[in-house]
Amino acid sequence: MLRYTLQRIVYMLITMFIIATLTFFLMKLLPGSPLKSQDKLTPEQITIINEKYGLNDPLPVQYVHYLGNLAKGDLGSSFQYDNRPVTELIGNRIGASAQLGFQALILGSIVGLILGIIAAIRHNTIFDYGATVLAVLGISIPSFVFAGFMQYILGVKLQLLPVALWEGFSYTIMPTIALSGFVIANISRFMRTELLEVMGSDYIMLAKAKGMSGTGIIIKHALRNALIPVITIIGPLAVNIMTGSLVIEQIFAIPGLGEQFVKSISMNDYTVIMGTTIFYSALFIFIIFVVDILYGVIDPRIRVAGGKK
């Protein structure tokens, strides 16, 4: 298990380093100095920034400098938001995004698992077909389309829920559902397949042959084994939710990180773009890492030494 964890950490660091490097050089490729277009800045500010970030130094020096700052957690300052540090901007916005993301992930996982389990247990019945159709629709209909239809029907037509903004729990409902659709679809589909496979396995047959009852077998033997592989898709799904929130926050005018990111793209606020990109990457990679470790903890074949994956 220790080896497994260390190996994951090394991979994580390598990937992070590559992303940081890539971001840096790609940003440097951008035509002209990012400061030129920023007419809001006074010449003094430009001098300060140039000095602080050594923008006049040769590229390798800047690069080393940049990596050093990164290691300290300094992502630079925004050119647009009064020269405020990017970390502070991220800090201000992360709350709403995190809440939205967690709600969507939890709702999606729970509903997805339930649907998947029902579909597998009631294999080849109307429940199964229903869940399968739902899953195909959930995977195919983009979250923004789903969001649009909800806004139009529940918000505009029926006026059941607020159309946009972020001022209380009721405001979170539609964006949460919109984001969780894809998660529900994927988890239910995956869970169904896994559970069906497990239910057909020899050890379930042996458990039956021991005289265990149907529900006992599902709870004690089948679910755990079917859930383990499902954990592996939670990571990518969490990343999908974060990506999706870039769009969903726009649509529902939610003051989150994604909305700020999109705004900084339209305003060419390069340090914010760069900083947020790095932050997102770190988060993505960290989530995948956590899920991998979780997988190792839950699966005895990895946790207990001597096991092979």
């Binding site: 396995s201 020899d202 050890y203 047959m205 042996l206 458990a207 039956k208 042959a209 021991k210 005289g211 265990m212 033997h221 755990r224 084994n225 383990i228 699966d299 005895p300 074949r301």
Partner: peptide, 19 residues
């Protein structure tokens, strides 16, 4: 099942619950 009549399957690699 398991009490009066018991069963052994072909493949020991797959007939025990791995977790």
């Amino acid at each position: 099942r398991g009490k009066d009549i018991a069963m052994i399957f072909q493949d020991p690699m797959t007939s025990l619950n791995p977790t």
